[in-house]
């Protein structure tokens, strides 16, 4: 393990990038998932069809392909747009961090769409009737009854979606994001110890996913304090 000595700070900054990607993709993933679920539950046939296509496309395609397509595709499209205004531009670089963040948020968002849809459908009819009987408006029912009841149902699969986000971050290294996996590749170049370097990466990811799992367990416990059978 002495070979890792000079590389700990690089691994640390790489881990910070993993966290950054996780944070932004988590926000985007929730937004995509909620929009998708709202579209699927709406009465609008066009919205339903679009949301259906979204989930089929992003759940049926390998993650790496979505990342590559978004990265190279957006680079080509942006270059073409910029060339209209300044014809001597050769190539526009798209930051891999943003292309990758959006790509994994779109992928996991398609799974979250189904989770949120199922959770909203799982809210008990009786709770909503009770809210109506208390004279709550639709908005109040949504905020005070539907949301608190649905997030408890959505939490266990949502925890898995968060784990997918963390683990998919490693795939963004393929398009050149300098996260831990990328650091390992550089470190191997100088130390010639691939096993050691990749084991460190594995350890970092294992730590991240353990933290996510533990927080989800904590949140489940918090959510269950008022649930059925709780006192």
């Amino acid at each position: 393990m002495e070979a890792v000595d000079g590389w700990w700070d690089d691994y640390f900054w790489g881990s910070m990038i993993v966290l950054q990607v996780f944070f932004f993709s988590l926000i985007l993933m929730v937004i995509f998932g909620l929009i998708g679920a709202a579209a699927k539950l709406s009465d609008n046939v066009v919205a339903q069809k679009i949301a259906g296509a979204y989930t089929i496309i992003f759940r049926g395609t390998p993650e790496i392909l979505v990342i590559l397509l978004l990265y190279f595709g957006s680079a080509i499209t942006l270059t073409a747009i910029v060339q209209i205004f300044s014809p001597d531009t050769k190539f526009v670089d798209v930051p891999p961090l943003w292309a990758g963040t959006i790509a994994i948020a779109l992928i996991v968002g398609s799974y979250a769409t189904e989770t949120f849809r199922g959770a909203f459908l799982g809210v008990k009819e009786g709770s909503i009737e009770a809210a109506r009987a208390l004279g709550m408006s639709d908005l109040q029912t949504f905020i005070y009854v539907r949301i608190p009841e649905m997030w408890r149902l959505a939490l266990p699969p949502f925890g898995n979606h968060m784990l997918s986000l963390i683990k998919d971050t490693a795939l963004i290294s393929i398009i050149g994001l300098n996260e831990t996996f990328f650091v390992a590749k550089q470190a191997i170049g100088t130390t010639g110890e691939p096993f050691t370097m990749y084991i460190v990466v594995g350890g970092i990811y294992l730590a991240f996913s353990s933290i996510v799992t533990l927080s989800v367990m904590g949140m489940e416990k918090f959510g269950a304090r008022t649930g059925e059978g709780a006192r």
Partner: peptide
């Protein structure tokens, strides 16, 4: 725990590039 907690890409690289170190 280990194989569900780490990215499959890391697992592939450890096996393909990592193991021949020994």
């Amino acid at each position: 725990y280990i194989f569900r907690g780490t990215p499959i890409l890391v697992q592939i690289f450890i096996i393909y590039y990592g193991l021949p170190q020994f």
